[in-house]
Amino acid sequence: MHNTKMPVWTDRKILSEFMSVDELTELGTGDVAYIKPIKARDLKEMFPDVPPLHDNMTLYALLNADGTPILLADSREAAVANAFEADLQMASLH
């Protein structure tokens, strides 16, 4: 059942009637990005070539709409600046 407090277009079941999984996955790719703070100890999965860092160090990953990593920065401001230079629309994470 659809949550009446949410727009209809946020319901995956309804969306799947109009778009394929591949189309949904590619939605916003190359145009929309988000920034995610990430601890150095969790980087290897996203960035396999990252050199050893202090485990508690917080870095900022700029990610494509589909979650593909674009870059890693030492500050949120640097990640935002890169997104701006690449003409990416920023999405907010909750």
Rank of each mutant, 00 (worst) to 15 (best):
R41K: 13
V50W: 03
P51T: 00
M6G: 00
V50Q: 09
E77I: 14
M46L: 15
K39I: 05
A79V: 07
M46R: 09
L15W: 09
L88K: 05
L88Y: 13
T58E: 13
L43R: 02
F18N: 11
D42R: 15
M46E: 07
L72D: 07
P48I: 04
V80P: 01
L53N: 06
E45D: 13
K44Y: 12
A81N: 10
D42Q: 15
V50E: 12
A78W: 06
I14F: 12
P69V: 08
D74W: 12
M57V: 10
D11I: 03
E45G: 11
V21S: 13
D22V: 02
S92H: 08
R41V: 06
K5W: 04
A40S: 10
M57I: 07
A86G: 00
A78D: 15
E23M: 07
F47W: 10
R12K: 14
M90I: 07
M57W: 14
T4L: 15
P7V: 08
T4G: 03
H94L: 06
R76N: 14
M90P: 05
Y60K: 05
P51N: 02
F84Q: 13
P52N: 04
Y34N: 01
E23Y: 00
A61R: 05
H94E: 11
D42F: 15
T25E: 14
E23F: 04
H94W: 02
L63M: 09
D11R: 04
A81Y: 05
N64Q: 07
E77W: 11
N82G: 06
K36F: 07
A33S: 14
P51D: 01
V50P: 01
G28F: 04
L15S: 13
D49G: 01
V21L: 14
K44L: 14
E23C: 01
M19K: 09
A91D: 06
A65N: 05
S75I: 11
L24S: 01
L71N: 10
D66P: 03
T10Y: 03
D31Y: 07
G30P: 08
S16V: 02
L93S: 10
V21C: 08
N82D: 15
R41S: 09
A78I: 11
L93K: 08
G30D: 13
L71V: 10
A61T: 11
T58F: 08
L24C: 02
L93Q: 11
